[in-house]
Write a protein that binds this DNA or RNA. Structure first.
Lengths: 221, 221
DNA sequence: ACCTGAACACCGTTCAAGT
DNA sequence: ACCTGAACACCGTTCAAGT
């Protein structure tokens, strides 16, 4: 049969593709094996089990982001750096909406690694860069905390608004069922279209501007 | 045997207790049945399946928060209201750390319901209250978006820092394994203790103060 | 009306056996 | 060294049967 040797990375990438398409709940060792034209049990030569596989999938995505986007060029300022990281992470979240909940939900390597920046390599790079731009230790840590908290809040909301059901592969009732039974909630009914208006891009940029403004204000205080 | 009749609410509360203790991944219909001294298959008379059960568990917690905390008294100002809701939600998240990821990860009733305020009743009440304090339509919606995004960011991070593994019931390697292999990351190593310092309470309060300040600044603009 | 027990089609994972 | 096939202990869910 001239079967090619499996490699852990191929398995992990297949898992990411599978989760992107069908959701984690649908990922089984047997089905993933099928997609790789191998018996499920062969996967155990490369990963210790399903749990580790999911964890590796998350790590892979985070590492990709680091390698592809960041090591390229040095940004011109710390503001540009924050914008760059924020937008790269946002692109990642929006292009893998079924993976993103796992990124923030899997336990990080250490409790002081805050999602979605969840690897020592990443966080060290982030902190070092800020320090290179003259941030003190205190301000570096403050900025890291404010930045992660901002990023997380926005991205979870954006992904959630995509209506992805991380649990099932089929949406029973897709589409924007509008004002179903909102009769008892007049305020909600009146504001509904404003709430549904999607200004994610602008909200994200404005929030980021705000954050940068606040960091700037305390940077040299 | 004088078996008591099951009720859906008892099943849902048992599911919450089970998830709190062991995590969602450990919840099975058979095990939950055992904890209620009933065969698993009896549960299907009250819930359509495991998926609905988890969804009901999330709703139950959100409803509890609404009933227990909010309907009590009218707060003295919109600032007091926001603080009240924020702290109530934070208490809920911290006392059910294994449920919280489900609250933000389950698809909401409508995509414009932003977690963790994920019920029409809740959101209508929130919006109505702000309007009672003189917020215009635009400012109400802006405040709602800023508030949910703030709350989500902070709470996800706090829960994540608790190191809860939503996937498994046993932590292989619990405890604060400190500076394992941080040799290649000097910045991280130096800032590690500052990062690990838990100032969640202060960060939350400061962030909330900030948010309220920003909302105040635009309220009558 | 509600619960049970057996059954079905799946899981994750182990392990002896093949090559 | 790596993959397979059978096996084990579990799942969620259906359904006929009991009471």
């Amino acid at each position: 049969m001239a079967r090619q040797r499996l490699r852990q990375e191929d398995i992990v990438r297949a898992a990411i593709a599978f989760i992107d398409e069908f959701g984690v709940q649908s990922l089984s060792m047997r089905r993933l094996g099928m997609s790789l034209e191998v018996e499920a049990m062969a996967l155990y030569n490369y990963v210790s089990g399903r749990e580790e596989l999911v964890s590796l999938a998350v790590d892979e995505l985070i590492d990709d982001l680091f390698d592809d986007e960041l090591m390229q060029e040095q940004p011109a300022s710390w503001e540009a750096f924050l914008r760059f990281v924020a937008n790269a992470m946002r692109d990642l979240a929006l292009s893998h909406p079924r993976m993103f909940p796992l990124m923030i939900t899997q336990p990080p390597e250490a409790p002081w690694l805050r999602p979605p920046l969840r690897s020592v390599r990443w966080v060290d790079y982030f902190l070092t860069t800020l320090q290179d731009y003259g941030f003190s230790d205190e301000r570096t840590v403050d900025a890291y905390k404010a930045f992660t908290s901002f990023l997380l809040g926005h991205l979870v909301l954006e992904v959630s608004a995509m209506g992805i059901d991380i649990a099932s592969e089929i949406d029973d009732d897709a589409g924007g069922g509008e004002s179903e039974g909102l009769g008892d909630y007049p305020t909600l009914r009146r504001l509904q279209t404003m709430l549904a208006d999607d200004h994610s891009d602008r909200e994200f940029d404005d929030g980021l501007d705000d954050l940068i403004e606040r960091i700037r204000a305390t940077k040299d205080a």
